[in-house]
Design a binder for these strands. Sequence first.
DNA 1: TCTCTGCGTGAATACGCATGCAAATAATTG
DNA 2: CAATTATTTGCATGCGTATTCACGCAGAGA
Lengths: 385, 385
Amino acid sequence: MEKFGHFPKRQVIQGAAPIGPKRAFDAQHSMASRRINSRTTSFDVAALAGVSQSAVSRAFTPGSSIAAQTREKVIEAARKLNYVPNSIASSLTTKRTNIVALILGNLANPFYVLALHEFSRKLQACGRQVLIFTVEPGAESDEAIMRALQYQIDGVILTSAQLSTRMTAICHERGIPIVLFNRYIPASDASGVRCDNVAGGRLIAEAFLSAGARTFTMITGDARGTTSQDRVRGFVERLIEEGIKRTDIEEVAGGSTYDGAVLATRKLFAVHRRRADALFGVNDIMAMGAMDVLRFELGLRIPEDLMVAGFDDIPDGARESYKLTTVRQPVDRMVEETLAILHLDDPHHPIERGIDRPIKGELIWRGTIPQPSSARKPAKRQLGQ
Amino acid sequence: MEKFGHFPKRQVIQGAAPIGPKRAFDAQHSMASRRINSRTTSFDVAALAGVSQSAVSRAFTPGSSIAAQTREKVIEAARKLNYVPNSIASSLTTKRTNIVALILGNLANPFYVLALHEFSRKLQACGRQVLIFTVEPGAESDEAIMRALQYQIDGVILTSAQLSTRMTAICHERGIPIVLFNRYIPASDASGVRCDNVAGGRLIAEAFLSAGARTFTMITGDARGTTSQDRVRGFVERLIEEGIKRTDIEEVAGGSTYDGAVLATRKLFAVHRRRADALFGVNDIMAMGAMDVLRFELGLRIPEDLMVAGFDDIPDGARESYKLTTVRQPVDRMVEETLAILHLDDPHHPIERGIDRPIKGELIWRGTIPQPSSARKPAKRQLGQ
DNA sequence: TCTCTGCGTGAATACGCATGCAAATAATTG
DNA sequence: CAATTATTTGCATGCGTATTCACGCAGAGA
């Protein structure tokens, strides 16, 4: 891809009326405004409103020192010219772009779509923009972060992608906060917000146990991330406490995807002819992949023949086809915490390093585990309308 | 939200070695680089490499006039300082941000996630960034577009949101191309790329007819958009051609969402006790909502008791739980065409107005319509790995 | 050896806006 | 009414980079 291009010079119109040195500026700009693609600038507005460019700037800067009447004049002139302030230019002086980079590693998992939506909503609500970077699942995020830095973003949010120590350092060195979403890196300088995955794993174990399960299978996710590991850990921990033998818990890697879980389930049950009472998909999308294989390829009934649980509580899992019992990750609060750690409102706030903020999830009973008597109504969640 | 903040002035260090006026610039910048949050600039790199700032700029501009040896020196110095060019500053002079605004109206429909992913991938591949705006479904996109304009984006892509004539005009006036994705507005200045929805609707009708259906129901989407209308039109058109009576085709609005389709289906079949051979969900997500009601609330078998078809071919519909027969929208080509109309590579290309580019979809046979003998293997599509 | 190209280079400047500073005006007080 | 104080305003400048212009210099041709 060629980066260079031909950018036309401003044409100097010769026949213009003679003007004094003081008006040179205005003239230059009003000439320019005839050109196609020329933006109208604060000078144009200033000229029309009969004030200085500073006044225009102030009119659009909340809290700055300007008379209400002047502001109105300016706003009116701006309206006439369809003027909008150039955020790019403004960023150059303020050193704030109001842009946050969101690095997405796995859009195939609806959980991250949920997160994206929530981030976008909340950031838009406070006048920021979201710059998206998609990274192939499991790939390094280094390149994406470097690109983000070029755009002088105010902060970086990283979901499901690897983060190198070097990148963390580079961001911090520049005063750019970076927060991991739904993961954390132990003993790292990078901060992160996540669900309390260990506790969540325990909730699932608890649910299975309460329904009488004694032998278990797990489909695990990305082995490099703590997220999957922690869920597994909490799950196993709780089972062991209850006297389950480790040999009665089998795990297979499902790569965090639906398709990966399909393969894993086939291997587990069709090839190895594994018998188990319960299957824990370390996230919902994998649990759903497993369910489809169990039901449609192996002819098993859920939960009668085998119980299933997931983790995340994505909207898809709530549908009648799955009615997946799961642990709800409180996306809303997680997003809130993530933004809080970014301190977008206060550029001078020292960067929060090494924070690990686990947030409790909640067990959502639906149809894939027989429910004890002390039951509540099944919960549901929606995205959008 | 306060926009203003206190930005510390650069501290002038007094005890610095005496320097000539020529080096004042360099000194200022190298002093600055000690400050927290200070970016290293092209001047810093220039100083270290022993060249002028122009040379640094040229080193990072492909195709510019610079000796290979000089470029290397500069790149080396930049590497040492972790320097990356400031795209914001560069945009100020080039008038190109390499940012494209993507306005999303309905992330709850995986089709748009698919599109987002593809846009992101393709744009990143050619060195552009994607600035995301989410708009509540059905809401005006005006505000989002105005925000995008502030950021001097190079183009706007609009999915599933209303576009006012005024906004189209404002964008065009500024030389910003705007393209509708998956919709078009008749007799409008705005260009758009979409699937050939009429033809797609006909494909579905054809499939139903080939399986022997004679009475039909439809769950329709957004009545304001042409997308749903066209699919319905093609569908009905083909049925009428085959001698189906209009009274044997009923339609209910499903609001383009899963939940809306659930309600619509209940109304249609549970309340009105409608009988029909086939149900056409105007998009996959609605067809899936309908299927879940038909199967789990009404106990109907698909396709034995009732055939179903969707439109889009989202990955979710391909799963064993649904195996939805549908029309595949060629996202890949649609995205390509959309970007082509944007002409990002050539800022001087006149804006393409009023283009309507329909792209043929393809019928994907899966399990929800009994398949005639001339069958192919069911197709599958994936997002991500 | 001396012009004629043409490439490489540095100095200077513009891009559009925010802000420190000082001047000017308005509001307040004694 | 004069003396302050508070509020507005304009001027000038800087933010970091791309690009124009003019100049230096090496190799080509005469």
